[in-house]
Design a protein around this nucleic acid. Structure first.
Lengths: 370, 370
DNA sequence: GCGGATTTGTTTAGTGGTTGAATTATTTGG
DNA sequence: CCAAATAATTCAACCACTAAACAAATCCGC
C-alpha cells in the first residue's frame, strides 16, 4: 500500500549543500526573471532570504561568471546606491543544433538569451554534416571567449532513452545512435517540437502551461506544464498528427482514415491553396480535445502554422469555443510562435542554458574542477 | 527573457528547517514504500542519510504517532536485532466523502491504508445530508481513538479554485459553495475522477503515470503523471467525454455530434444491451488519442467500466494498437480498477493522508500546537 | 556645506541540522 | 563465555542560514 513503482524526484535526501544548491538556483532565477537589474537587497526581499545570505550566494555566482554587477541604476531617494545584478553574457553558453528535412542549423546562445552565432546550411542530412556545423559554431564561440556548457540536438522524430533516435520518418532514419557528435561536450537529443516549445517558453512570454503545435510534414506538439516540458513516460508525448477527425475521411499513411495530418499537414495545406477553413476546423477539433484533456489555456502555433495564424485563427477558435466545455469560464488563447523557423535550434540552446540556470551549483563545481 | 508568468514551486527559499521537513517526508515515504517493516539502519541505507540522522528523524515521527516500532522481525545471522518501523494505525486518519447521483458515502482510512469505517446511504443528494454522514463517520472514528487530519469531498463535476463547484450537471448544481461542511476540519473538494485516480494510485499498484477513466453518466478521466495528480491550469483536466468520434454521429447534449459519451456513456452502454463492441471501439479511439498525446502506458478503467472490462478489453486494445504510433515499442496496458465503486471515497480519504505523508513536518507542528 | 536620515552591503555571533567516529546495546556462533 | 556482527545512540565538528550590529554611500534639509 502507498507505493508506486517510480517514486517522484523527492526520493533524494537533502543535505546542507543541497540547501545552498537550491538557493543558488533561486537567486539566479530571481535575477533572470527581473525586468531591471535588481540589487542584492531587492533579491533578498523577493526571495525571503536575508541580505547576508544573498551576498554570499551572489559572490559565488559572480565568481562563477554566472552573474555580473552592472553600474548603479539612476535612482531617486536617499540611501547608498545599489549595484545592479544581471546574467553575465560572458558566462556559459548553450549550443543548439537541429537537423531537419531540408536544412540543418546551429546556434550559440549566451546566458542573457542573446543569439551570439547562428549557422544554417541546406542539404546533406547526415550526422557528420551536423558535427561539422557544430564544430564551426564552437570555433566562433571560442573566438568570442565563450565557454560552451553543452549541446542539444533537435530531430524530427521519436527519441528514446539514451538519445537513440527510434524513428524519424521524414529523414528515413530508424534506430540511429547519435554518439559523440560534439567531442568533450555533454549532448542531449530531443524531439523538435519539444525543444521548440522550450524555445517559446524562454523567448516568448507564454504562461507556465501551454501546448506548442509544430506543423511540419508531420504534426507534433510540445507540452509544457507548470514551466516544465512534459516528455511522457518514454519521451514520446505530443503525437497529435493522427488524432482522428473523421472516420470516413481520406486514408492516412498510418493505416487509419481521416487523421489530422490529412487535413492540416504540410501537404494538405499546400493543396488547400489558400483556403484554410478545413485545415483550421480540423486543427480546432483536435486542439479542443487537447484542451479538454489537459485544461491549458494557451496554444502556440509554430512551424508552418506560425505565418498562417491570421488565416487559421477564426476557424480554430470557433471550433475550440464550440467544443471546450470550460471555454465560457476561461477563454483559450491562440497565438503564433515568436521564433518562427528558429524555434527548435533556439530552444535546443536554451535547454542547455536552462540546465545551468536550474542547477548553478553543478556548473560552479564543474568549472572549479578545471 | 527567461521569464514566464508563473514560476515553478522552486520559488521558495529553503532554510534548515526545510531540510528537516524534506527529510522527515523522505523517511516516512521510505517506510511506507517498504514491503516489510524496515529497521532504522535499512532506512538509512535506502535514503543515503546517516543512521544518526535517521534516528532523530524517526524519534520525531514516532513522537507524532506517524510511525510505530514493531517487534523485531525474525532474522538469521548475528547482530543486534532490528526494531521494525511501520506506519502507525493510531496516527492521523483521513475522512473521505462522496456525493453522487444516487448515493452518498463516507469512509475513514488510517495511515496504513486500512478502511476503518465505511458508510453509504442512498438518496437525498444535499450538502446537509453529506454533513450528517460525515458527522456520523467522525463519531465512529473518535470512538476508535482516531484523530482525523482532514476531509476531502468527491463530486461529479467541475471544481474551481476555492472548492467552488462550478457545475455538476448530473446533480443539477451550479456555482455551489461547499462551506464549512465538517466544522473544525480542513476540507478539500475535488472532481470524482481525480480522487478515484488517486485512490487507484494508493490501493492498486499502477505505474507512476497512468490515466484513470471514470465511466458514469458522463465520462471523466483522472490523469496521474509521475505519481502526482495532474489537475490542469484551472483544475478542469480530464474532460474526455466529448472527444469527437464521428462528426456524422448522433447529436450530443453539448451541441456537437458524435461525442464519446454518445457511444460509451452510461445510457449508451445500457442501450447496447450486452454488445459492447461499438462502445469499446469508441473508447479505444479516444484513449488512443490520450495515449498519443501523453505517452502513458497504462489505462485504468473504473466506474461502470470496471466490471465490463472483460467485454470491452479486446475492442479497446485493438483500436489502441492500431492508432498508437509507439504501440510496437511499448504496449499499452489496460486494466480494471481494483476499488470499483469505492474508488472515489477511498481516494478522497487517501488524498488527506497523502497530504500528511508528503509534509509530516506540518502535521507534527500542528499536533504540537494543541 | 554639514549633520542626520536612509538605503545598501558586509561582518560577526548564534542556531539548526547533518556528518562521522566512537560508544553502547543485543544478538549469533564457536 | 568470549569474539564477531549488526543496531542504535551519543558527541564533537561543520555547514548554511539568521539576526543584529556595523560600515559605506548617497540624499535632504537647514
Amino acid at each position: 500500500m502507498w507505493h508506486c513503482q517510480e517514486v517522484p524526484a523527492s526520493l533524494s535526501p537533502v543535505r546542507q549543500s543541497g540547501v545552498r544548491a537550491h538557493n543558488l538556483a533561486l537567486v539566479l532565477r530571481t535575477v533572470a526573471n527581473s525586468a531591471d537589474p535588481p540589487s542584492r537587497a531587492a533579491v533578498a526581499a523577493a526571495t525571503g532570504l536575508t541580505r547576508a545570505t544573498i551576498s554570499t550566494l551572489v559572490d559565488d555566482l559572480i565568481a562563477g561568471a554566472l552573474l555580473t554587477e552592472v553600474g548603479p541604476a539612476p535612482r531617486s531617494g536617499a540611501g547608498r546606491p545599489a549595484a545592479g545584478l544581471r546574467l553575465s553574457p560572458d558566462g556559459p553558453a548553450g549550443l543548439g543544433l537541429e537537423i531537419n528535412v531540408d536544412y540543418r542549423a546551429a546556434c550559440v546562445v549566451d546566458l542573457t538569451g542573446s543569439v551570439r552565432h547562428r549557422l544554417v546550411e541546406k542539404g546533406d542530412q547526415s550526422l557528420p554534416a551536423v558535427a561539422g556545423l557544430a564544430h564551426q559554431a564552437l570555433l566562433r564561440a571560442s573566438s568570442d571567449g565563450l565557454t560552451v556548457a553543452g549541446a542539444a540536438l533537435a530531430v524530427p522524430g521519436l527519441v528514446g532513452a539514451g538519445g537513440i533516435i527510434r524513428v524519424a520518418p521524414n529523414l528515413g532514419w530508424q534506430d540511429v545512435t547519435v554518439g559523440d557528435l560534439v567531442p568533450g561536450l555533454p549532448l542531449t537529443v530531443d524531439n523538435e517540437a519539444n525543444l521548440a516549445a522550450l524555445g517559446e517558453l524562454a523567448a516568448g512570454d507564454p504562461p507556465a502551461s501551454f501546448v506548442y503545435v509544430s506543423g511540419e510534414i508531420g504534426i507534433g506538439a510540445g507540452i509544457v506544464l507548470g514551466g516544465e516540458l512534459y516528455r511522457g513516460v518514454r519521451g514520446w508525448s505530443g503525437e497529435i498528427g493522427h488524432i482522428p477527425i473523421d472516420p470516413g475521411g481520406p486514408p492516412c499513411r498510418c493505416g487509419a482514415r481521416g487523421c489530422l495530418e490529412q487535413y492540416a499537414g504540410q501537404e494538405a495545406i499546400a493543396r488547400a491553396a489558400g483556403d484554410l477553413t478545413v485545415a483550421g476546423t480540423a486543427l480546432g477539433t483536435a486542439l479542443a480535445t487537447v484542451v479538454n484533456l489537459l485544461d491549458i489555456d494557451t496554444v502556440v502555433l509554430g512551424g508552418i502554422y506560425a505565418p498562417l495564424v491570421p488565416q487559421l485563427h477564426d476557424a480554430i477558435q470557433a471550433e475550440i469555443s464550440r467544443r471546450v466545455l470550460t471555454a465560457d469560464w476561461s477563454p483559450v488563447r491562440l497565438r503564433a510562435a515568436t521564433l518562427g523557423a528558429d524555434a527548435a535550434v533556439r530552444g535546443a540552446a536554451g535547454a542547455v542554458l536552462r540546465g545551468v540556470l536550474d542547477d548553478p551549483a553543478a556548473w560552479l563545481s564543474r568549472i572549479q574542477a578545471v
